[in-house]
Design a protein around this nucleic acid. Structure first.
Length: 164
DNA sequence: GCCAACGTTGGC
DNA sequence: GCCAACGTTGGC
C-alpha cells in the first residue's frame, strides 16, 4: 500500500473537487452531521484512491472548481471507505454507466460529512503564489483529477492560510 | 466561449 | 498495440 500523509497517526489527506453550482460547501454544511455519498466519479485514478486508499477518519479539502473563484473552501471527514457507486447502476440517473454492474462494479464512492467552512477560502490564484505549495498535485499542469491526495505538509500549510 | 490537457474509443 | 478522433475537464 502506498504511504500517503502522516505515518504516525495514519490519517491521510485528500482533495475533492466539486462545481459549486452542482454541490457547494454551503450545501454540505446545510446537511449538518448527515453523511453524503461522493458519487459520480468516473475516472479510474480517482476511483482507485476512493476504492483502495481512503479510510474512515481521513480528512479532505473541499475545492470549488468551474466557477468564478476556484478555491479550497473547507474540509470534510471520510466516514465510510470505498464501496460501489450505485448511481452507475440506475439507467435513469445522470451518472449511469452500463459498463458497471452490481455483480462487477466499475465505479466506487466514499461517504463524507461536513468538517468546516473556511473563514478565508484559499483561492487557486493564491495557492500558486506560495513556493511551499508548488509541488501540489492540484497545481500540476493539466491536472484534471476530481479526487486526489494531499500530503501532510501541504494540508497543514493550507489550513494555516484558511485560518488567518 | 475558448482552448490546452488528457482520458477513452475504435479502426487498423 | 498504435494512434487519430473525439469528449470532458476546468482555468481563464
Amino acid at each position: 500500500m502506498a504511504l500517503i500523509g502522516n505515518s504516525v497517526t495514519g490519517v491521510r489527506h485528500w482533495l475533492f473537487k466539486s462545481e459549486p453550482s452542482a454541490f457547494s460547501i454551503t450545501d454540505l454544511r446545510g446537511r449538518g452531521q448527515q453523511t453524503e455519498h461522493w458519487d459520480g466519479v468516473r475516472n479510474f485514478q480517482a476511483r482507485n484512491f476512493m476504492r483502495d486508499e481512503m479510510r474512515p477518519g481521513d480528512l479532505g479539502f473541499f475545492y470549488h472548481s468551474g466557477c468564478a473563484e476556484p478555491a479550497v473552501v473547507g474540509t470534510v471527514e471520510i466516514v465510510r471507505s470505498g464501496y460501489p457507486d450505485f448511481t452507475a447502476f440506475d439507467p435513469t440517473h445522470p451518472h449511469y454507466d452500463p459498463k458497471s454492474m452490481p455483480q462487477r462494479p466499475l465505479w466506487y464512492m466514499v461517504d463524507v460529512r461536513f468538517g468546516e467552512e473556511f473563514r478565508n477560502p484559499v483561492t487557486l490564484r493564491e495557492l500558486k503564489t506560495h513556493p511551499a505549495l508548488h509541488g501540489m498535485r492540484l497545481l500540476a499542469r493539466g491536472n484534471r483529477l476530481s479526487v486526489m491526495p494531499v500530503n501532510q505538509r501541504e494540508w497543514d500549510y493550507i489550513l494555516r492560510l484558511a485560518h488567518r
